[in-house]
């Protein structure tokens, strides 16, 4: 073999390896989906959604976990959306270029890299103990809000950045104030990008387990929470609880609950992708 042939051979060998590497991830994903489908699909029934947890796997359901997840999501959104968008606007439109704005920026990048369990420790000390909110939905949601805040802030900023500065100038030239310009022009024009960021952030929050365990979400909640001050559990914690048990019946329950959780996450991510594409195609300046 001459040099040229070796070169070509190596090139082709890499190509085959690269295709395999690309496939490994996707194959794993496929195996994972098939496996949970095979394990859990037959367990999904109306009763599974409406039953309370139980010591007997065939009678246990995800009602309390599902309701808990909904409660936590809604309250997390209530805190994280306005604060995140507000902070994004502040950084993009108000903060003067200088040490303060670069400090804020580095700070937010750092927060985005803090392991989620650390937020759990923060929530445990501040919300549960210092503010005496207890091991409640409120403590859990506040913790998750802080966790997803960097995602909302960053996507708000990115979305505002895509609005051309000529919009801002046109609005100012008509005598609009700074806030009128932001509220009536910049935010509507950036809304698609901001919405996408919010959905992605919430879908991240839905899958979070560790920080909520630390804040004190319970493994076993035999009642449906009625207010934000009630104790709670969420789907991922219910799954963790079932996976940790030795009986095969609970593993099946876990698989079924995973199907529900995955469906929610996939739907949210899908919605985000569709929204992003529509937003990018709609406005072309």
């Amino acid at each position: 073999m001459n040099n040229e042939q070796v070169k070509t051979l190596k090139n082709n060998a890499f190509k085959i390896w690269a295709i395999i590497a690309t496939s490994i991830g996707l194959i794993m994903l496929a195996v994972l989906l098939i496996k949970i489908g095979m394990d859990g699909l037959h367990r999904l029934s109306f009763d599974f959604f409406t039953a309370l947890p139980s010591r007997r796997p065939e009678q246990a359901g995800i009602l309390t976990a599902l309701v808990g997840t909904l409660w936590v999501m809604v309250t997390t959104a209530v805190f994280a959306i306005p604060i995140g968008i507000g902070a994004g606007i502040y950084l993009e439109e108000y903060a003067r270029k200088g040490w303060w704005s670069s400090f804020l920026e580095i700070n937010i990048s750092n927060l985005a890299g803090v392991p989620s369990i650390i937020y759990g420790l923060l929530g445990l000390e501040i919300f549960v103990r210092t503010l005496h909110l207890g091991q409640s939905i409120l403590s859990g949601s506040l913790t998750l809000s802080l966790l997803i805040l960097p995602i909302v802030i960053v996507s708000t900023r990115e979305a505002i950045k895509t609005v051309p500065s000529t919009m801002r100038e046109a609005s100012y030239a008509l005598g609009a104030s700074k806030w009128q310009t932001i509220w009536m022009q910049m935010l509507p024009a950036a809304s698609g990008g901001i919405m996408t960021g919010i959905i992605l952030a919430l879908s991240r929050a839905i899958g979070e387990t560790a920080p909520l365990i630390v804040v004190g979400a319970l493994m076993y909640v035999p009642f449906v929470p009625k207010s934000v001050f009630d104790s709670f559990t969420v789907l991922p914690i219910q799954i963790y609880n079932w996976v940790s048990r030795p009986q095969a019946g609970f593993i099946i329950n876990a698989a079924a609950a995973i199907i529900v959780l995955m469906l929610i996450t996939i739907l949210m991510n899908g919605a985000a992708v569709i929204l992003r594409n529509r937003w990018q195609n709609r406005v072309k300046w």
Binding site: T166, M167, A170, Y172, A173, L174, G175, A176, P188, V283
Partner: peptide, 18 residues
């Protein structure tokens, strides 16, 4: 902004709001 109400402006590139 009071001033800008009385002094209108038309820009180089048409920039209608979306």
């Amino acid at each position: 902004n009071e001033l800008r109400k009385k002094v209108g402006m038309v820009f180089q590139k048409p920039n209608p709001f979306p």
